[in-house]
Amino acid sequence: MLGRTMGYVGVGRTGPVVVAVVFMPADALSSREAERVREVVGDGLTAGRIRLQVRLVPLAQLPELGGVDGLYVTQGTAGHPAVPLAARRLRVPTVSASMDCVQAAHCTVGFSSEPTVQIVISRNAAARDGVEFTQAFRMLVTER
């Protein structure tokens, strides 16, 4: 399974994908969401071609963050200016369950799963963070 996943990731990303879960310790909702994420992923979660691993990162530590492939933005941190700054520095996408975050171009990708799966990409945020997506994927999602 791991080999298949790595094959799907392709050249240049043959190992696990590490995502920083950005949370605000003082915000109970944000902390709870970050903990939920850690519980679900545990030691790692296979999703399609990648092996997802997460690292919980307080918002205040974002400026020093390195070695991650993406940022998962919890509630309460979505609108903070440190998030797009870190994404641009690291050149990684920011992912959120908050569509408002994408609408405001603070996040690159927003998801919702109810009632059906919706994926929205902010073209402005992607351009700002230096993140590109494949043509096929772009054809399947909503770009704004």
Partner: peptide, 18 residues
Amino acid sequence: RVLLAGACCLAWTAQVRA
């Protein structure tokens, strides 16, 4: 579900170029 969707999405970034 959101995490998995996000993880799948990461696999589609141009860095990955699958």
